[in-house]
Each structure stands twice: as structure tokens, then as C-alpha cells.
Write a protein that binds this DNA or RNA. Structure first.
Lengths: 331, 331
DNA sequence: CTGAAAGCGCTAACAT
DNA sequence: ATGTTAGCGCTTTCAG
């Protein structure tokens, strides 16, 4: 900047003004400065600008990594990539940058670090896992944070999420409409989102005067192996079922594989519905019936909410509508 | 920081020193300051620190977004998520943060922006597409940049990539060993990586005294629809083939689907091999034979190379070994 | 319309 | 062992 000032024969103040398009500076000078900046490929140092302006146009996005006992298990669910893409778009649209970090799910406090050190104006967390309390603490401490997940009672932090109860309800109703009566449920109901899907599942059963059979509910992790394990566990229990509702498409896919290994066909022997509507669901064999999460809206809503919070305003949690997509795995 | 200084009854310099664990400061004072900082939940403002130290521990990671004529098509290939994860890990390991941005593939220059504005010390670009020249320009301009992709002649920028020729060779040899003779090739050979895989493919054919049949090579985009379109195009051409090698697992999957729609079974009628070894390949039906890209090493290599470059040293392009994974789709 | 000067939060000589 | 001072690159009063 000093260089430009010297070359243009003006002061840095003028350069600064010119570059920011201030009307206070002579049209001609401004053009000259602009031109000079372009030819020198000069761009304002955002770090310094931020420091001076006490502003910041970066938000933190945190993806939790599951660390099981041995290996650090990576989240490979394509749903996350979709969410990331959606966030990246929404942020770009608003002129914000995205600082991505990956944090062990069991030390979520680290998620606030980029905020504490002033690098970001707030944090978007994808997935609330079972760390309600830690999230509450962070929010109470004043960290602007928005979580993709379910709305819980006594929640101090802000969430944006799909309507999980409706999602569970839609999927289960659909399976019931196909004449299925013994519907297995795959998903870790310790996690708020899965719990609410389970709630919708129960509700749909009750509408038909059916009671949920605990033998049909298997809590498996969201890791892809979960589907295999779930189906094996059901076999171990000797459970009989003619349909299966899994809490993610990935689980549904591995479950279908495990069923196939048992010699059962989908949808003939077992009708299957997943959750998320990741792209691969379309060309899985059979194509997956699933509950679509509104990805594009999700990104926008998360960003909008975070910006509210970051500006010191309060923001309400939001629930986005979900939609049943019927494909061959259930009909 | 000033607050802490006041409360501790020392100067900010002392606080700064104490916080950085300098031995120059009295043990006792240091503890007091540390304690104070903790209780006030104070953390150093990294922006200011960076400005002062002229350092920076953030690297930019750019994912190109394909924008076709109408909609902005998102890259949904899980391979990218894997790469992101790998990069995130490698960066964390080295104490670096990751600024993620998504850039239209046809205005790649924008990729350097976070560098120009001083936010990152360099840029890692996932995929070189067909923008060799732009990349060369950026490198020539002095932007520290490392690209995941193939090594090209007259290349000024640094690449890290799998050994694509070997990958193509391995896959094709394997298909030939299965007794297949008419092997279709799906992939956009305008893109350097695909071109080299094609080269390996040709080489394997030649080893058997076979000449590549141009009718069997279809240039399709890396978007998942590519697989479908490729198979349809082959049908349109009236090409006969008993095997298919696709440049990504996603392409292989959609191709298999399209084949199924034509009433052909895999691997019986057509043996199929993909590329990348994304996780879903394991539980696709049939499980996919594929060429594994060394993801974990990739992340580490990309980061290591970028750090070299960022420190002003020169770095050589690297090629990582690939490995054939045989599964049911080809045997 | 433009320049001089102060200061964002931090660190590093250079004193003491 | 600690404080004083200057300055990283920028913006913005406040004076001209």
C-alpha cells in the first residue's frame, strides 16, 4: 500500500480511500490508484484490515470426527459433503469465507477455538451427536454457534435441522402402506436426530394400532458398518421383519448388502427405506426409497442464523421440511 | 491482553512473554498471568499475532465446482470428501488451519485470491481439470500452489497425484486376464488424469497385441450421469464390449446401472472396473473392482509439498503408487 | 479533496 | 526480570 502511495504520489490514506471507492477522493486520483493496484496485482491485506476494522468475514465450520478405540474413524458419509457444499455456497453468496476444522466428537469444546482466537465470527457445527451439554456451555459462554441437528428441550444453542419426526413418520407410513407390518428400525436413538426419527416411526405404527416392538429397534452407529451389524444383530435376536427403516442412506445400503448375504431380497422379502437422499441412492441397486433432507435450504438457513447470532441478535432454531422419495427399494 | 496486564500488575510485554512461555519471565509471574488468562478465558488474537509476526498458519484448499450451462453442478463425488478429510488431518497434524473455498472451474484464477489477500500461505487445489495454463500462470506469479493431478510436460506448478498410467495399466491388465478382449473406456481424456489412465489402458492392450478401438473410448464428464451417458453412447455406436473401465467409481456405478437397464449383467456380460476405491464401492452391488488412490498419503504429501513451497523452497512433483483392488464386479 | 497522526492487538528489540 | 517503544498494514478522525 505504501508502495502504491509512493508511485501515485499520494498518501496511504488516499490510497486506502481510493481502493474502497470513497467519493471523497478525486475521480482521477482514484482511477490512477486503482490502475496502479491492478498492475501491481496488489490486494488489500485482509488480516490487517480485519484488525483495524475489528471485523471478520470468516465463519468456522466444524465436522466432528468419530474416534473409536483404535483408529480415528473418518466421517465418510456423502451427506456431509453435500452439507459442506451447501454451506460453501451459502457463505460465498454472503461474501464469507469458511474455515473448516475437524474435531474429535468427544472433545467438542475445541470447536470454539477458532472463535476464541478471533479467527471466525462464529461456528457452524454439523451434527450435535450426544454433546448437548457441551454445546449448551459454549452457547452460554457467548460463542455464536449454530448446530445442524434436532431441537431439544432446555437448549441454549441454536439448531437448524430437518423435521426428523415427520421424516420418520413419512417413511414408516409408506412402509406400512406397502402392507409391511414388522418394520425394523436401525439407528442410534441416543442421538437426538435418530431419536426423533424413531418417535415418528412409533407414531406411524400407532396410527395403525401397532405397538413398536423393541426387538426390532437396533442402535447402531452412523458408520457404514452399522447397517451390516444391525442386520446381523436382528438375526441374532431371531427377529422377523418384512421392512427396515435406516437412519441414513449409508446404513440402508450396507443393510441391504447384509440382507443379500442372508439370501433375502429387497424389496420382496424386506422393503427398505433410508434417510438423507444422498446422490448415490439413485443409482444404488435397488434405488433407495429415502427421506430427503433439504440440503440447499439447510446451508442458507445455517448461515443466516449464524450471522444473526454473530451480530449479537438472537435467533430462533429452525426446522426444515422433509420429503419422502419413493424408489424401488420399498415397492 | 491489556486487561490481563493491568490485573496482573505488569506490562503487556510481560504478558505476551508469559503467554508464549518465555524463560525470560519470572516463574511466579508467568503462572499468575497464565492463571489469569485461563480464568478470563483469554486467548491470543491470532489475526493480530499474524500481522505482527508476518506469519500465518492457514492454507487454502480449493475445490472446483463444475458449472454447466444451467445449474451450478456440485461436485458430489465422495472421493472429494475423502481427500478433504485427508487434508484436514494432515493440516491439523502440522498445526495448520484450512480455509475451504469452492471455485468455478472455469475461473480458476480466483483460487489464488485467498493467497493474494494474505489469508493463506498457499493453496492446495483438488483436481487440475483442463486449466493447465492458468495454473502455470499462477505458479509463475509466485503463488505457492500444489495441485492434485497428473504431471504434465512444461509444468511450472507442483503436482501430487496417483500413478495414473499404472492405474490404467493394472485395471486393464486385470480385465484382460479375466479373458475379456473388448474393453470399453469411460472418461474424459481431455483431462490429464483420465488421459494417463487411457495411456495405461492402451499399454495393457498392446502387451496382448491388441490395438485400442476408438469406438470403445467414450469421453464423458466426471459427473455421475457420465456413466449412464457413456453406456448409452456405446449402444448408439453399436459397439460390442465385454468389459468396461471407468475413470471413477461413481462413473462405474452409474454405468453398471445403465447396463442393467439394457438387460446386461455384471460381471457376466460385462466386467467392470472403476477408479478411486471410494468407500461405497465395497457395498455396491456387485462390489466394485477398482484402483485405489492412496488418500492418506495424498493429504500428507500435498501438505508437505505446499509447506516447502510456502517457505520459499522448491519442491518436486510427486507420484504416489496405486493399487488394484479386485472385487466381484470383474470376476 | 488530501495528508498527518493515532490506533486495532500483538511482539521484539532495546533499555533498565 | 520487566518496562518502553516502535511497528506489522490498514482505516479514520481531524486538520488543512
Amino acid at each position: 500500500m505504501a508502495d502504491i502511495a509512493r508511485l501515485a504520489g499520494v498518501s496511504t490514506s488516499t490510497v486506502s480511500r481510493a481502493l474502497s471507492g470513497s467519493k471523497l477522493v478525486n475521480q482521477e486520483t482514484r482511477d490512477r490508484v486503482m490502475e496502479l493496484a491492478r498492475s501491481l496485482k496488489y490486494t488489500i491485506n485482509i488480516g490487517a484490515q480485519n484488525l483495524r476494522l475489528k471485523q471478520n468475514r470468516t465463519v468456522g465450520v466444524v465436522i466432528p470426527a468419530v474416534s473409536d478405540t483404535h483408529t480415528r474413524q473418518h466421517l465418510t458419509d456423502p451427506f456431509f459433503l453435500g452439507m459442506l457444499g451447501s454451506l460453501a455456497d451459502a457463505l460465498t453468496e454472503q461474501g464469507f469465507d469458511m474455515l473448516l476444522s475437524r474435531v474429535d466428537a468427544d472433545q467438542l469444546d475445541a470447536a470454539a477455538q477458532p472463535y476464541d482466537t478471533g479467527r471466525v465470527i462464529g461456528v457452524i457445527l454439523i451434527g450435535q451427536w450426544r454433546h448437548h451439554d457441551q454445546l449448551n456451555q459454549m452457547a452460554a459462554r457467548g460463542v455464536p454457534i449454530v448446530v445442524w441437528g434436532a431441537q431439544l428441550p432446555q437448549q441454549l444453542y441454536c439448531t437448524v435441522g430437518g423435521d426428523n419426526v415427520a421424516g420418520g413418520l413419512l417413511a414408516t407410513r409408506h412402509l406400512l402402506q406397502q402392507g409391511r407390518r414388522r418394520i425394523a428400525f436401525l439407528g442410534d436413538i441416543q442421538l437426538p436426530e435418530a431419536a426423533m426419527r424413531y418417535q415418528g416411526y412409533c407414531q406411524a405404527l400407532q396410527e395403525q394400532g401397532l405397538a413398536p416392538d423393541p426387538a426390532l429397534q437396533v442402535s447402531v452407529s452412523f458408520l457404514p458398518e452399522g447397517g451390516t451389524e444391525g442386520v446381523q444383530e436382528l438375526a441374532r435376536r431371531g427377529a422377523t421383519y418384512d421392512a427396515l427403516f435406516a437412519c441414513s442412506d449409508l446404513l440402508a445400503m450396507t443393510a441391504i448388502n447384509a440382507l443379500r448375504a442372508q439370501g433375502r431380497t429387497v424389496p420382496h422379502d424386506v422393503a427398505v427405506a433410508g434417510y438423507d437422499d444422498i446422490e448415490q441412492s439413485t443409482y444404488f441397486h435397488p434405488p433407495l426409497t429415502t427421506v430427503r433432507q433439504p440440503l440447499a435450504d439447510a446451508g442458507r438457513a445455517l448461515v443466516a442464523t449464524l450471522l444473526e447470532l454473530a451480530e449479537g441478535r438472537s435467533a430462533a432454531s429452525q426446522q426444515l421440511p422433509t420429503e419422502l422419495i419413493v424408489r424401488a427399494s420399498s415397492v
